[in-house]
Nucleic acid binder design. Structure first.
Length: 459
RNA sequence: GUCCCUUUCGUCUAGUUGGUUAGGACAGUACCUUUUCAUGGUAUAAACAUGAGUUCAAAUCUCAUAAGGGAUGCCA
């Protein structure tokens, strides 16, 4: 049984890089009929918050990235970590270190000035300066020779010499375990078979493998996916970029569109661009993830979103749009056929907010700007609209065909071209000149509303 | 400094065992459709980081260089 996990640290919201990693991890598990696990890595008590945990879970939920187990919390597993640390100390694979921060800084500086690699010199392993007033940290005794080699499922063979590795701290002086150690114990206990994560963890992997070895554990497969960068190629920044997954919801992005777009960053399947999560799962494999980082392109995201909106079910879109319309104080009524309006309007939008804007004027016409009024609502045009309203009033065949015929006949009768009728009509009916076909608008508005608006005085 | 990762159109990618006019998509440009704005359609421009080597043949294999990123934390 394949088991993968997503292990964010709750020091902020779920960002799109994390979401993409979660997606790969999720899709791989699903593809292999395996299980996907959520684990919250909250060992850094200083920086972890409950709000972050909630927002991460909320975002996973919105994306519909469902986990089979979890969320597990590392802070609830402290006893287990302590137990394993004791084991390692008892076996001589870990040791107490009493060095102060100042001592360590001094040591590192000396090493650097000699052109050496900064690395703990193991003074506490050989002759510990045990002091009652100092609470020691615990260091892992890393192998001194040889190298750690693994076949990364994305990057290929990676080899790192043990001399490059430090005796890393696995427990702080307050007794709390650190990241690299918790990851190992958790992945072991949770029987994770495939560790899928960002490639910023490549450097941690040999340390984790060494700890796993010391524990006599089986080594899982590792797959390190490249990062997502900003449009300009720089690292994403939480201050300057829209990096929170939920910000994209606010921008009117559909979760399935965001997933689709994220999937296409560092991964491709021939010429395919638009697909849903199930299709993605069928196609996905770790070995066709590319090795280099990708830049985030907001324009393409909007295009993908537009495609998903076009293919989305109108009832489903209606539910989403109603929420947005309500938040914009639009007064809704049941006389209008919202799914039919959505069907008409959706090819002209690439996000839910503008979809809502293009629907709002069906319920309440916008206030037209003066420039448009001067241009289109001339006395002649108003006269024309009055005549048009009269013709409409006597139309019994309220169908698209009936309306089309009426409009055609009207244009012939008054010797005008379509835009000559259409533009003032749009302005009067909707308050804007940028709308879909006006025959469709009249049809969906219905006779009563159409006549009401045509007769309104606000021109 | 040392170690690790990376490099195909502006951007995302295809290119699985060396032989392609290096393909697609977004963005761009032009045109067509049209009832305004869009949608849609057609066309167009645009790339193998650099230098060696192996080979009849290299985007693809090897090496070097350069440029970017990461690690070198009692962060994850």
């Amino acid at each position: 049984m394949i088991r993968t996990r997503f292990a964010p640290s709750p020091t902020g919201f779920l960002h799109i890089g994390g979401a993409r990693t979660a997606l790969f991890s999720y899709a791989y598990a699903k593809r292999q009929n395996g299980q996907f696990i959520l684990r919250i890595e909250d060992t850094d008590i200083e920086r972890s918050t409950k709000e972050s945990v909630d927002s991460i879970i909320h975002a996973m939920d919105w994306l519909n990235l469902n986990y089979d187990e979890g969320p597990f919390y590392q802070t609830k597993r402290m006893e287990r970590y302590k137990e394993v640390i004791e084991q390692l100390i008892a076996k001589g694979q870990a040791y107490h270190c009493y060095c102060s921060k100042e001592e360590l800084d001094k040591m590192r500086e000396e090493q650097k000035s000699k052109g050496l690699k900064a690395k703990y010199d193991r003074r506490c392993l050989h002759s510990p300066d045990i002091r009652e007033d100092v609470k020691p940290v615990v260091r892992f005794k890393n192998p001194e020779s040889g190298s750690v080699i693994w076949n990364d499922l994305i990057k290929g063979r990676i080899e790192i010499a043990n001399v490059e590795l430090d005796d890393l701290i696995i427990a702080r002086s307050d007794g709390t375990p650190t990241y690299n150690f918790c990851v190992v114990v958790d992945d072991l206990d949770m029987q994770i078979t495939h560790v899928v994560r960002g490639d910023d963890h490549i450097n941690n992997t040999p340390r984790q493998i060494n700890i796993l070895d010391a524990l006599g554990a089986e080594i899982p497969f590792y797959a390190h996916a490249p990062m997502i960068l900003r449009e300009d190629g720089q690292k994403m920044s939480k201050r300057h970029d829209a990096v929170s997954v939920m910000q994209y919801k606010d921008m009117g992005i559909l979760p399935e569109a965001l997933l689709n777009y994220l999937a296409r960053l560092c991964w491709g399947h021939g010429d395919d661009e638009i697909f849903d999560i199930n299709q993605f799962i069928q196609w996905f494999d770790l070995n066709n993830i590319s090795v280099s980082p990708a830049r985030f392109d907001i324009k393409k995201l909007y295009w993908v979103n537009a495609e998903h909106i076009k293919h989305a079910d109108n009832q489903k879109l209606a539910a989403l749009v109603i929420d947005i319309l309500k938040s914009k104080q639009v007064i809704l009524n049941d006389k209008l056929d919202l799914p039919a309006i959505i069907e008409l309007v959706k090819p002209r939008t690439d996000n839910l907010n503008s979809l809502a804007d293009n629907i709002a004027y069906f319920y309440q016409p916008l206030t037209p700007n003066q420039e448009d009024i001067d241009k289109h609502l001339t006395p002649e045009a108003i006269n024309l609209l009055t005549n048009f309203a009269n013709e409409l009033e006597s139309l019994d065949n309220w169908t698209m065909d009936g309306l089309k015929q009426l409009i055609k006949d009207f244009c012939v009768k008054y010797e005008i071209k379509m835009p000559g009728l259409g533009m003032p009509l749009r302005l009067k009916l909707c308050g804007t000149t940028q709308t879909p076909s006006f025959d469709a608008i009249i049809f969906l508005l219905g006779k009563k509303l159409t006549l009401e608006r045509l007769k309104a005085l606000h021109a």
